[in-house]
Simulated scan of single mutants.
Amino acid sequence: MRLRPDQLKQNLSKTLLPIYIVSGDETLLVQECCDDIRLSCRRQGFSREVLHVETGFDWNELLASAAAMSLFAERQLIELRMPTGKPGDAGGKALTEYAANASPDNVLLIICNKLESASTRTKWYKNIEAAGASVQCWPIEMAQLPRWINNRLSRLGLNASSEAIQMLAERVEGNLLAAAQEIEKLRLYTDGDTIDADTITAAVADNARYDVFGLVDRALEGNVSSCLKNLQGLKAEGTEPPYCYGH
């Protein structure tokens, strides 16, 4: 099955699948999804083993780990860190074999960087999805960021005005880790009152990340204020803005 990051926690509360593959280039979301899986396994008495897929990795290690019993627990979490998401022929066969014989005594957690679409169409990946779940962590776009911030504030018991949420989103755009850190700071900074724009101004640094492609997107949207903000950010970071030459 396929799960969104925001669906994972609820799914884990119902059942623990034998295999998860968590991928993406949004580091915070990948980390938090993996932490949720680790926590669920730990609560159910799983031990943990970590395998790193590097050049020369022996895929028999994975199958051997799956067959072995921990000295301290019969159930174990096998964490397979495979940044490239490309196991090669030997790895693809090993993962396919593992998926076909997944044991309820083990949970395999595969962690990858952003996967190419071709990787998600491979036999091994489809078998992993069929036996367990895939969780792809996409970056949070600016349009969705205020909602993400509001949900995170709510989980911490914090309330904020729409103006404050929008201001915070603008200050952390493109930098989700900074967003999480600033929200944690706000929890310490506030005394239970609704967070307003003045609080954001006083407590939150400008952590937005800017790029030329974002500038082009804002220009195509006709968003003049965001264009100017992006240009100022690029200038502060020492990046030359793009130039258009007429004919």
Rank of each mutant, 00 (worst) to 15 (best):
R2D: 11
Q7K: 04
Q10E: 14
I19T: 13
L28K: 07
L29H: 03
R42Q: 15
R42A: 15
V50Q: 05
F57S: 03
D58T: 02
W59M: 09
L63H: 07
I78N: 04
E79A: 03
L80F: 02
L80E: 01
M82G: 02
G85M: 01
G88A: 07
G88S: 08
A90I: 07
Y98I: 00
Y98H: 08
P104H: 12
L109E: 00
R121M: 04
T122D: 04
K123T: 15
K126V: 07
P139H: 10
I140L: 07
P146Y: 06
R147K: 12
W148K: 02
W148A: 09
L156V: 10
N159D: 09
A160C: 10
V172H: 02
N175L: 13
N175P: 08
L177D: 08
A178I: 13
K185R: 14
D191L: 08
D196W: 00
A197I: 13
A197T: 13
D198M: 05
D198T: 09
T199C: 14
A205N: 11
Y210S: 03
Y210G: 02
Y210H: 12
D211L: 09
V212Q: 14
F213E: 14
R218L: 12
L220N: 13
V224Y: 12
S226N: 12
K229N: 11
N230P: 01
G233W: 05
C244R: 13
